[in-house]
């Protein structure tokens, strides 16, 4: 597989050097792998720190900036960052009003953020954590690792980030983040596997003419393989899978998210089908976002995330945001 890289060992560092060069509004510590907004710590503001394996860009580094994250910690490709990174980030962004860790529900992320929270608290930083687990393809049970964190991470980081920017206290920012998690569900499909730089070949074998239903964002296979479906059929399947666990009584935010290798032309066509299904099911749409936001390297495919919102969540969603990956309102 051809890749636009130098060597596999330096892909994360190379990308961070590129971010540093492109975004003077960020402080990018390439050696320690921490991306911080340049004006941090912002006085009298709760700080948001997230992180996770690389390969999901623009998540999380592309969401650092006013109105969203204060810092992000990128790990190796598809590997959670180490506690030292989060401790360093928390120290850099804490204004004394506490730090909220936004953690996607994967065993590695959970363990490393948990260790980081303990270490940061030892250093006098007040830390709260919110776990994002929105993927309905995984059965949630105490006997499993639980639902994965996927597209809803963007909603959590945007809405909690806006709440922090408004000067809300840590408990309130944390409660809003939890409300977004509880109100969000996702479902993803893959038309191809993805290729990690370290392995250099696809992570699983998906023959032409078939697709994987219920994939995550790490090139892991899904729960079921079927003969290739049309955009219309995929939208029916994915939206119904989400609605089976969400049953929104309020309008929803819709994220039609590309996995990395699916053209926007196809994503917008798919969005039309998603809206059709939502209309047929009587679900009101408040806002829609279409694009590649929570990706899985070069995987072809998409995911649908719905988040039901009350007036306050919608107001916070509409609030200004200035990041490399999401920008509006100012």
């Amino acid at each position: 597989m051809k890749m636009l890289i130098n060597v596999a060992e330096t892909v994360v560092a190379d990308a961070l050097r590129g971010m540093a060069a492109a975004h003077p509004e960020l402080v990018v510590d390439v050696e320690n792998r921490v991306i911080v907004r340049r004006d941090a710590p912002v006085a009298d503001k709760v700080a948001l720190v997230s992180g996770g394996g690389s390969g999901h860009e623009p998540l999380h580094g592309g969401f650092v900036g006013p109105g969203m994250l204060d810092a992000a910690c990128p790990g190796e490709v598809f590997t959670s960052p180490v506690p030292d990174q989060m401790v360093r980030a928390a120290a850099a962004v804490d204004s004394g009003h506490g730090v909220l860790f936004v953690v996607k529900n994967y065993t590695g992320d959970v363990l490393n953020f948990q260790m980081a929270a303990e270490l940061a608290e030892d250093e006098g930083v007040q830390v709260a954590s919110v776990l994002v687990d929105d993927d309905v393809a995984v059965v949630d049970s105490t006997f499993t690792a639980g639902r994965r964190g996927t597209g809803a991470t963007l909603f959590v980081e945007k809405i909690a980030g806006a709440a922090a920017e408004e000067g809300m206290p840590l408990e309130r920012v944390e409660a809003l983040a939890r409300q977004v998690v509880a109100s969000s569900r996702s479902f993803g499909v893959a038309l191809s596997a993805c290729t990690t730089p370290a392995k250099g070949s696809p992570t699983f074998d998906l023959p032409a003419g078939e697709l994987e239903l219920g994939v995550g964002i790490h090139g892991e296979p899904g729960r079921e393989r079927r003969a290739m479906m049309t955009s219309r059929e995929i939208a029916d399947f994915a939206v119904d899978a989400v609605l089976a666990e969400l049953d929104p009584r309020l309008p929803v935010l819709v994220l039609v998210n590309g996995m990395g290798a699916t053209p926007l032309l196809e994503l917008y066509g798919f969005q039309a089908e998603v809206r059709r299904v939502l209309d047929e099911r009587g679900v009101a749409v408040a806002r829609t976002l279409v694009g590649n936001y929570v990706t899985s390297l070069d995987m072809a495919g998409c995911s649908v995330t719905l988040c039901q919102v009350d007036g306050e969540l919608l107001r916070l969603w509409d609030a200004p945001v200035q990041t490399a990956g999401l920008r509006w309102g100012r």
């Binding site: 394996g53 790990g75 190796e76 590997t79 959670s80 960052p81 180490v82 506690p83 030292d84 994967y106 065993t107 590695g108 363990l111 490393n112 260790m115």
Partner: peptide, 12 residues
């Protein structure tokens, strides 16, 4: 291991 591996393997 904790400060260099990441993932679940590092902490475990």
């Amino acid at each position: 291991l904790i400060s260099s591996v990441g993932g679940a393997s590092g902490p475990l």
